[in-house]
Amino acid sequence: MNRNVKDTIVEGITGVSVLLIIFIIVSILAVTIVGGWPNLNWTFLSEFPKDGMTKGGIFPAIVGTAMMTIIMAVAAVPFGVITAIYLAEYASEKSVIAKTIRFAVKTLAVVPSIIFGLFGLGFFIGFIGKNMDGLLNGGELKWGQPNILWASFTMALLTLPVVIVSVEEAIRTIPREMREASLALGATKWQTIRRVVLPGSVSGILTGTILAVSRGAGEVAPILFTGAAYFLSDLPRSLSDQFMSLGYHIYIMSTQSSNVDATLPIQFATTLVLLLLTFSLNAVAVTLRYRIRKRAK
């Protein structure tokens, strides 16, 4: 075959692969928007589910998702930022400890999310929670069962690598000259970190937090048995309450509700809400990250 023809064919095949992926992405978006838009209105967002979940809104699922991701961020962000500081500022690249920590972070990033769910169940609920009940409540069951706190903590472990990676990347874009300027003025290492490195990494910390929240809002497997509930007539009032979540709501409604067809509009609209939520968060994060990378150049 002629070389030019071959070139064209190969380029065509690779190009078609790109188009296929983009087509799928667009299809998912289109289907969700077309299916969900008609039912998306203020009542839907602000009401509790009604009539055995076949009517009404998803207010508690929105609030539950928000609460869970906030608690998650409060737990994950400080730990993530500090670990990133360690990796970028304290660890020498060749040290075994730093390498081990890096490997551990990568492992956390690839462990299947369902394993976090198992761990949350075995560790937070079965171990910490049960022991807390034994010590604080005289054995009465309170913490030794699924709740929003344990679900958030479980999710925090899952999103920890997201925070670490973003923050470390941002820290590393701070020019060496800035650190040298600070140290040459007689600042200690910690003063340099606190007054030069961290203020310069604010956008990275923000990016990491947003990405973590977006990820946490969409994940379902880790909260399947650590705190998410099918239906609650009330919002969670304490950390030991269960909660409703958007992702879990979609899963339950689409696979296990007794009348799948009647709830179809709700399912689509809920999916649209979740997608809009994670997308807008991601868009903000990507923009921020783009700015950080531009600064690095």
Binding site: P175, E177, M178, E180, A181, S182, A184, L185, V196, P199, G200
Partner: peptide, 12 residues
């Protein structure tokens, strides 16, 4: 004290 080749004021 030290002054560097490339001026390096903080972004403050």
């Amino acid at each position: 004290g030290m002054i560097f080749q490339k001026s390096n004021p903080f972004a403050k």
